[in-house]
Design a protein around this nucleic acid. Structure first.
Length: 271
DNA sequence: TTCCAGGCGTATC
DNA sequence: GATACGCATGGA
Protein backbone atom coordinates (compact mmCIF):
# COMPACT_ATOMS: atom_id res chain seq x y z
CA UNK A 1 0.00 0.00 0.00
CA UNK A 2 1.49 3.26 -1.19
CA UNK A 3 0.72 5.66 1.67
CA UNK A 4 2.30 7.93 4.23
CA UNK A 5 1.29 10.37 6.95
CA UNK A 6 1.85 14.07 6.48
CA UNK A 7 0.70 17.00 8.65
CA UNK A 8 -1.98 14.90 10.34
CA UNK A 9 -3.36 13.55 7.08
CA UNK A 10 -2.83 10.39 5.09
CA UNK A 11 -1.51 10.64 1.56
CA UNK A 12 -2.35 7.66 -0.64
CA UNK A 13 -1.46 6.83 -4.20
CA UNK A 14 -4.18 4.81 -5.86
CA UNK A 15 -4.68 5.08 -9.64
CA UNK A 16 -7.89 2.98 -9.64
CA UNK A 17 -9.85 5.63 -7.79
CA UNK A 18 -11.77 8.73 -8.79
CA UNK A 19 -13.75 10.82 -6.32
CA UNK A 20 -16.61 11.79 -8.63
CA UNK A 21 -16.92 8.32 -10.08
CA UNK A 22 -16.93 6.56 -6.71
CA UNK A 23 -18.66 9.02 -4.39
CA UNK A 24 -21.24 10.39 -6.81
CA UNK A 25 -22.25 7.35 -8.83
CA UNK A 26 -25.44 6.46 -7.01
CA UNK A 27 -24.12 3.87 -4.57
CA UNK A 28 -23.85 6.24 -1.59
CA UNK A 29 -25.89 9.37 -0.98
CA UNK A 30 -24.15 11.24 1.81
CA UNK A 31 -20.92 12.41 0.16
CA UNK A 32 -20.99 16.08 -0.74
CA UNK A 33 -18.73 17.67 -3.29
CA UNK A 34 -17.29 20.60 -1.34
CA UNK A 35 -14.88 21.86 -4.00
CA UNK A 36 -13.21 20.68 -7.16
CA UNK A 37 -11.52 17.39 -6.29
CA UNK A 38 -12.82 17.46 -2.73
CA UNK A 39 -15.64 15.61 -0.96
CA UNK A 40 -16.94 15.64 2.57
CA UNK A 41 -18.78 12.71 4.07
CA UNK A 42 -18.84 10.07 6.75
CA UNK A 43 -18.84 6.39 7.55
CA UNK A 44 -20.67 5.35 10.73
CA UNK A 45 -20.79 9.06 11.47
CA UNK A 46 -17.01 9.29 11.48
CA UNK A 47 -16.45 12.34 9.28
CA UNK A 48 -13.90 12.59 6.52
CA UNK A 49 -12.76 15.17 4.02
CA UNK A 50 -11.02 13.60 1.07
CA UNK A 51 -9.11 15.51 -1.55
CA UNK A 52 -7.56 14.55 -4.83
CA UNK A 53 -4.11 16.16 -5.05
CA UNK A 54 -3.08 14.78 -8.42
CA UNK A 55 -5.70 13.41 -10.72
CA UNK A 56 -3.42 11.92 -13.36
CA UNK A 57 -1.29 10.01 -10.84
CA UNK A 58 -4.15 9.27 -8.48
CA UNK A 59 -2.85 10.92 -5.30
CA UNK A 60 -5.34 11.48 -2.48
CA UNK A 61 -5.31 13.20 0.87
CA UNK A 62 -7.46 11.83 3.69
CA UNK A 63 -7.69 14.91 5.87
CA UNK A 64 -7.39 14.74 9.63
CA UNK A 65 -6.73 11.01 9.68
CA UNK A 66 -3.82 9.17 11.26
CA UNK A 67 -2.39 5.96 9.92
CA UNK A 68 -4.14 3.77 12.48
CA UNK A 69 -7.58 5.21 11.68
CA UNK A 70 -6.89 4.93 7.99
CA UNK A 71 -5.88 1.30 8.25
CA UNK A 72 -8.70 0.43 10.68
CA UNK A 73 -11.53 2.27 8.96
CA UNK A 74 -10.95 3.87 5.58
CA UNK A 75 -8.84 1.19 3.96
CA UNK A 76 -11.76 -1.18 4.32
CA UNK A 77 -14.50 1.33 3.53
CA UNK A 78 -12.92 2.27 0.20
CA UNK A 79 -12.12 -1.36 -0.56
CA UNK A 80 -8.43 -0.56 -1.04
CA UNK A 81 -7.54 -4.20 -0.37
CA UNK A 82 -9.13 -5.20 -3.66
CA UNK A 83 -7.12 -4.91 -6.86
CA UNK A 84 -9.43 -3.11 -9.28
CA UNK A 85 -6.80 -3.16 -12.03
CA UNK A 86 -7.01 -6.93 -11.97
CA UNK A 87 -10.83 -6.78 -12.09
CA UNK A 88 -10.76 -4.42 -15.05
CA UNK A 89 -8.38 -6.75 -16.88
CA UNK A 90 -10.90 -9.54 -16.36
CA UNK A 91 -13.74 -7.34 -17.58
CA UNK A 92 -11.81 -6.38 -20.71
CA UNK A 93 -12.82 -9.75 -22.19
CA UNK A 94 -16.24 -8.24 -22.74
CA UNK A 95 -16.74 -5.41 -25.19
CA UNK A 96 -19.40 -3.45 -23.32
CA UNK A 97 -17.75 -3.82 -19.94
CA UNK A 98 -14.47 -2.85 -21.46
CA UNK A 99 -16.03 0.41 -22.65
CA UNK A 100 -17.67 0.96 -19.28
CA UNK A 101 -14.33 0.54 -17.49
CA UNK A 102 -12.65 2.89 -19.94
CA UNK A 103 -15.39 5.44 -19.38
CA UNK A 104 -15.09 5.45 -15.58
CA UNK A 105 -12.16 3.36 -14.39
CA UNK A 106 -12.10 5.07 -11.02
CA UNK A 107 -15.23 3.44 -9.65
CA UNK A 108 -14.85 1.41 -6.47
CA UNK A 109 -17.48 -0.32 -4.36
CA UNK A 110 -17.84 1.36 -0.97
CA UNK A 111 -18.26 -1.00 1.98
CA UNK A 112 -21.04 0.94 3.62
CA UNK A 113 -22.82 0.36 6.89
CA UNK A 114 -25.46 -2.33 6.40
CA UNK A 115 -28.36 -0.40 7.89
CA UNK A 116 -27.47 2.80 6.08
CA UNK A 117 -27.32 0.97 2.76
CA UNK A 118 -30.56 -0.90 3.37
CA UNK A 119 -32.51 2.17 4.44
CA UNK A 120 -30.97 4.34 1.70
CA UNK A 121 -32.08 1.92 -0.98
CA UNK A 122 -35.54 1.58 0.55
CA UNK A 123 -35.74 5.33 0.05
CA UNK A 124 -34.36 5.01 -3.47
CA UNK A 125 -37.27 3.09 -4.93
CA UNK A 126 -39.21 4.84 -7.68
CA UNK A 127 -37.18 7.93 -6.89
CA UNK A 128 -34.39 9.97 -8.42
CA UNK A 129 -30.91 10.48 -7.05
CA UNK A 130 -31.11 14.20 -6.18
CA UNK A 131 -34.30 13.57 -4.22
CA UNK A 132 -32.86 10.49 -2.50
CA UNK A 133 -30.00 12.69 -1.33
CA UNK A 134 -32.48 15.29 -0.12
CA UNK A 135 -34.43 12.80 1.99
CA UNK A 136 -31.29 11.28 3.49
CA UNK A 137 -29.92 14.76 4.12
CA UNK A 138 -33.03 15.67 6.10
CA UNK A 139 -32.80 12.41 8.03
CA UNK A 140 -29.19 13.09 9.00
CA UNK A 141 -29.84 16.73 9.82
CA UNK A 142 -32.73 15.74 12.09
CA UNK A 143 -30.64 13.19 13.99
CA UNK A 144 -27.27 14.88 13.82
CA UNK A 145 -25.85 12.03 11.77
CA UNK A 146 -27.20 8.87 10.22
CA UNK A 147 -29.54 7.35 12.83
CA UNK A 148 -29.26 3.72 13.89
CA UNK A 149 -32.35 1.57 14.40
CA UNK A 150 -32.46 2.29 18.15
CA UNK A 151 -32.63 6.02 17.52
CA UNK A 152 -35.53 5.43 15.16
CA UNK A 153 -37.45 3.02 17.36
CA UNK A 154 -40.32 5.42 18.16
CA UNK A 155 -40.77 6.78 14.67
CA UNK A 156 -44.05 6.29 12.82
CA UNK A 157 -44.83 7.03 9.19
CA UNK A 158 -46.45 10.25 10.42
CA UNK A 159 -43.55 11.32 12.59
CA UNK A 160 -41.26 10.82 9.60
CA UNK A 161 -43.31 13.29 7.61
CA UNK A 162 -40.47 15.80 7.78
CA UNK A 163 -38.51 13.56 5.42
CA UNK A 164 -41.08 14.03 2.66
CA UNK A 165 -40.29 10.45 1.71
CA UNK A 166 -43.86 9.75 0.66
CA UNK A 167 -45.05 6.15 0.70
CA UNK A 168 -41.54 4.96 1.66
CA UNK A 169 -41.84 6.18 5.26
CA UNK A 170 -43.91 3.16 6.26
CA UNK A 171 -41.27 0.89 4.75
CA UNK A 172 -38.59 2.50 6.91
CA UNK A 173 -40.57 1.98 10.11
CA UNK A 174 -41.28 -1.63 9.13
CA UNK A 175 -37.55 -2.19 8.65
CA UNK A 176 -36.75 -0.65 12.03
CA UNK A 177 -39.36 -2.85 13.74
CA UNK A 178 -38.28 -6.10 12.13
CA UNK A 179 -34.59 -5.49 12.69
CA UNK A 180 -35.14 -4.49 16.32
CA UNK A 181 -37.31 -7.52 17.04
CA UNK A 182 -34.84 -9.85 15.35
CA UNK A 183 -37.42 -11.00 12.84
CA UNK A 184 -34.91 -9.92 10.23
CA UNK A 185 -31.18 -10.06 10.83
CA UNK A 186 -28.54 -8.22 8.83
CA UNK A 187 -25.89 -10.40 10.46
CA UNK A 188 -27.64 -13.52 9.20
CA UNK A 189 -27.87 -12.00 5.74
CA UNK A 190 -24.15 -11.41 5.87
CA UNK A 191 -23.34 -15.12 5.95
CA UNK A 192 -26.36 -16.82 4.34
CA UNK A 193 -26.14 -18.06 0.74
CA UNK A 194 -27.06 -15.25 -1.64
CA UNK A 195 -30.62 -16.39 -2.40
CA UNK A 196 -31.39 -16.95 1.29
CA UNK A 197 -29.89 -13.61 2.24
CA UNK A 198 -32.09 -11.89 -0.34
CA UNK A 199 -35.16 -13.69 1.01
CA UNK A 200 -34.23 -12.66 4.54
CA UNK A 201 -34.11 -8.97 3.58
CA UNK A 202 -37.30 -9.24 1.53
CA UNK A 203 -39.26 -10.01 4.70
CA UNK A 204 -39.24 -6.25 5.17
CA UNK A 205 -42.09 -4.37 3.51
CA UNK A 206 -40.83 -2.29 0.64
CA UNK A 207 -37.79 -4.48 0.13
CA UNK A 208 -38.02 -6.35 -3.16
CA UNK A 209 -35.29 -8.05 -5.19
CA UNK A 210 -33.62 -4.83 -6.32
CA UNK A 211 -33.44 -3.11 -2.94
CA UNK A 212 -32.31 -6.36 -1.33
CA UNK A 213 -29.52 -6.76 -3.87
CA UNK A 214 -28.37 -3.18 -3.31
CA UNK A 215 -28.36 -3.68 0.45
CA UNK A 216 -26.32 -6.87 -0.03
CA UNK A 217 -23.87 -5.34 -2.49
CA UNK A 218 -23.30 -1.96 -0.86
CA UNK A 219 -24.05 -2.79 2.78
CA UNK A 220 -22.83 -6.36 3.15
CA UNK A 221 -20.20 -6.42 0.41
CA UNK A 222 -21.92 -9.35 -1.26
CA UNK A 223 -20.27 -8.64 -4.59
CA UNK A 224 -22.06 -11.52 -6.30
CA UNK A 225 -25.33 -9.60 -5.90
CA UNK A 226 -26.41 -7.95 -9.16
CA UNK A 227 -29.08 -5.28 -8.60
CA UNK A 228 -31.30 -4.84 -11.65
CA UNK A 229 -32.74 -1.35 -11.73
CA UNK A 230 -34.29 0.30 -14.76
CA UNK A 231 -30.87 1.28 -16.15
CA UNK A 232 -29.29 -2.14 -15.74
CA UNK A 233 -32.37 -3.71 -17.31
CA UNK A 234 -31.75 -1.51 -20.32
CA UNK A 235 -28.11 -2.68 -20.44
CA UNK A 236 -29.20 -6.30 -20.20
CA UNK A 237 -31.80 -5.94 -22.94
CA UNK A 238 -29.46 -4.11 -25.27
CA UNK A 239 -26.09 -5.77 -24.69
CA UNK A 240 -26.67 -9.02 -22.80
CA UNK A 241 -29.87 -10.62 -24.08
CA UNK A 242 -28.38 -14.03 -23.31
CA UNK A 243 -27.10 -13.18 -19.84
CA UNK A 244 -23.88 -11.90 -18.32
CA UNK A 245 -20.47 -12.95 -19.68
CA UNK A 246 -18.37 -15.48 -17.77
CA UNK A 247 -15.71 -12.91 -16.89
CA UNK A 248 -17.96 -11.35 -14.23
CA UNK A 249 -18.62 -14.60 -12.38
CA UNK A 250 -18.44 -14.04 -8.62
CA UNK A 251 -18.01 -10.27 -8.95
CA UNK A 252 -21.24 -9.41 -10.74
CA UNK A 253 -21.95 -6.52 -8.39
CA UNK A 254 -18.75 -4.70 -9.24
CA UNK A 255 -19.41 -5.13 -12.95
CA UNK A 256 -22.92 -3.84 -12.31
CA UNK A 257 -21.63 -0.56 -10.95
CA UNK A 258 -19.43 0.09 -13.99
CA UNK A 259 -22.35 -0.72 -16.30
CA UNK A 260 -24.83 1.37 -14.34
CA UNK A 261 -22.61 4.43 -14.43
CA UNK A 262 -21.78 3.91 -18.09
CA UNK A 263 -25.32 3.57 -19.41
CA UNK A 264 -26.65 6.39 -17.26
CA UNK A 265 -24.12 8.84 -18.66
CA UNK A 266 -24.31 7.47 -22.18
CA UNK A 267 -27.96 8.33 -22.66
CA UNK A 268 -28.05 11.80 -21.25
CA UNK A 269 -26.53 13.97 -18.62
CA UNK A 270 -26.70 12.95 -14.99
CA UNK A 271 -29.94 13.43 -13.22
C1' DT B 1 -50.01 19.41 -17.75
C1' DT B 2 -47.82 15.19 -18.07
C1' DC B 3 -44.04 12.22 -17.41
C1' DC B 4 -40.51 10.09 -14.84
C1' DA B 5 -37.36 8.57 -11.08
C1' DG B 6 -31.40 2.94 -8.64
C1' DG B 7 -39.46 -0.58 -7.25
C1' DC B 8 -42.70 -2.66 -4.75
C1' DG B 9 -47.41 -4.20 -2.91
C1' DT B 10 -51.63 -5.76 -4.43
C1' DA B 11 -55.13 -7.53 -7.42
C1' DT B 12 -56.18 -10.43 -11.16
C1' DC B 13 -55.58 -13.87 -14.55
C1' DG C 1 -45.65 -16.68 -12.98
C1' DA C 2 -46.84 -12.94 -15.50
C1' DT C 3 -48.93 -8.49 -16.11
C1' DA C 4 -51.39 -3.94 -14.79
C1' DC C 5 -51.88 -0.35 -11.73
C1' DG C 6 -51.36 2.88 -7.80
C1' DC C 7 -48.20 5.14 -4.99
C1' DA C 8 -45.79 10.52 -2.43
C1' DT C 9 -42.92 13.83 -4.02
C1' DG C 10 -40.66 17.09 -6.92
C1' DG C 11 -38.02 18.32 -11.07
C1' DA C 12 -38.05 18.59 -16.14
Amino acid sequence: MDLYEKNGSIILKQPDFDLDETLDCGQAFRWVRTADNEYSGAFLNRPLVIRCLDKSDGVFEFCGTDEKTFLDVWLDYFDFDTDYSELKRRFSDDETLSKACAFAGGIRILKQDAWEALSSFIISQNNNIPRIKGIIGRLCKHYGGYPDIEQMKDETPDSLGFLRAGFRAKYLTDAVEKLRSGEVSLEKARTLPTDDARAELMKIKGVGPKVADCAMLFGLYRIDAFPKDVWVKRVMAEYYPNGLPDCVKGVEGIAQQYLFHYIRNLDSDKR
